[in-house]
């Protein structure tokens, strides 16, 4: 089955918008972090899909192979994934602290508590 050439990008856009919707529409802070993760993964898939070359192979040098995938996006995303988990952990730590201070992780309840004297 031959998919149209732009199909991967459309999936990426759908994923990205799902993550974006979760971030702006949901009030739960843990859910917002999950939404950010979805957004992040969609960007990763976008980069990796650009590095693919038709008929190419993984970028590990070997005799008799001429066409390799582009290694540069792989490097960028490899580090970005690990940095992503570290920053996610930081975000979750912030959520835990917010829960300790406000007693809730719902955005509107936090706002309501802020307006109290």
């Amino acid at each position: 089955m031959e998919l149209p050439g732009l199909f991967t990008y459309w999936i990426v856009v759908v994923l990205m918008m799902t993550g974006f919707y979760v971030v702006i529409a949901q009030g739960n802070l843990v859910k917002k972090v999950v939404g950010l993760n979805i957004f992040q993964v969609s960007v990763f898939v976008f980069y990796i899909s650009m590095s693919k070359v038709k008929g190419g192979t993984a970028p590990i040098l070997e005799d008799g192979i001429e066409v390799y995938a582009n290694p540069l996006p792989h490097v960028l995303i490899l580090t970005a994934i690990v940095v992503g988990i570290a920053t996610t952990a930081l975000g979750l730590a912030l959520v835990v602290r917010i829960r300790e201070t406000y007693g809730t992780v719902e955005e509107d309840e936090i706002n309501a508590r802020e307006r109290e004297p």
């Binding site: 690990v82 988990i85 570290a86 952990a89 730590a93 835990v96 829960r99 300790e100 201070t101 007693g103």
Partner: peptide, 23 residues
């Protein structure tokens, strides 16, 4: 660095009291 940061982050999360104070 990566291994130690993962271990640190996990230990800190696991070392919290469940539920928090929740004033």
């Amino acid at each position: 660095t990566v291994a130690c940061s993962m271990i640190t982050i996990f230990f800190i999360f696991a070392g919290q009291r469940p539920g928090g104070e929740g004033r």
